[in-house]
Amino acid sequence: MIELFDVHKHFKEPVLRGVSLSVPAKGIYALIGPGAAGKSILFKIIAGLVTPERGSVRVNGEEVVGRREREMMDLRRGIGMLFQNYALFDLSVAENIAFPLRRLFDFSEDEIEARVAERLERVALPGFQDRNPASCSGGQKKRIGVARATIARAPIVLYDEPTAGLDPVTSQKIYNLIREEQRAQESTVMVISSDVNGVLSIADRVGMLHKGRLIFDGTVDEARVCPTPEVNQFVHGLTEGPL
């Protein structure tokens, strides 16, 4: 379970303004909102990559805020993350996927190799072990990122824009993959996406951030009939409205 209480963060301008949120365990929570709403920063705060100025973040009951970098290791063992920009290293595909296993766990080389092969099968990229991510397409990079985010079988997985820049067919395949992975691992999943229809097709709950505030938190059905103008406009993709 992920809980945030009164989280504030600013850089040159305020990015998050008192966000309080509770993400139930073992489900998919979609976080939607227009650009620069603070969605990616919220993920980084949950993962302990960014420290908020104010507020509390609890992941599986443990406080994240205030921990030192070297104390984050235990927490991050339990979190997998797909980054918006892929964040793949200049290593082979296999080395990229195996990276968290090598650093966070003490598996044998055989086990790592087997797990990497299994992940690549799962994301429909068998035999990609020795390729360099630079030679892969955007959709393949996303799938490599999904494989890396899920290889440690972490109980919490954060997907930041898993389908940005992808065609509708590949996008839906990625969403299906996220749903299948969540069911197989019984993990708690949060997904940021600007593709509202796609992400709502797999989400159990949805939250909307706008100008650093959480203006909606509820089920997918509630989101579709929400009277709040910003939510209504964003969910239905209307051109007329306050956004």
Binding site: A47, M72, R76, F83, A87, L88, F99, P100, R103, L104
Partner: peptide, 15 residues
């Protein structure tokens, strides 16, 4: 840093 690779390193306990 701008392509979030350093964040990915930190997520894997690599300072």
């Amino acid at each position: 840093v701008v392509t979030e690779q350093t964040d990915a390193l930190r997520m894997s306990a690599a300072d």
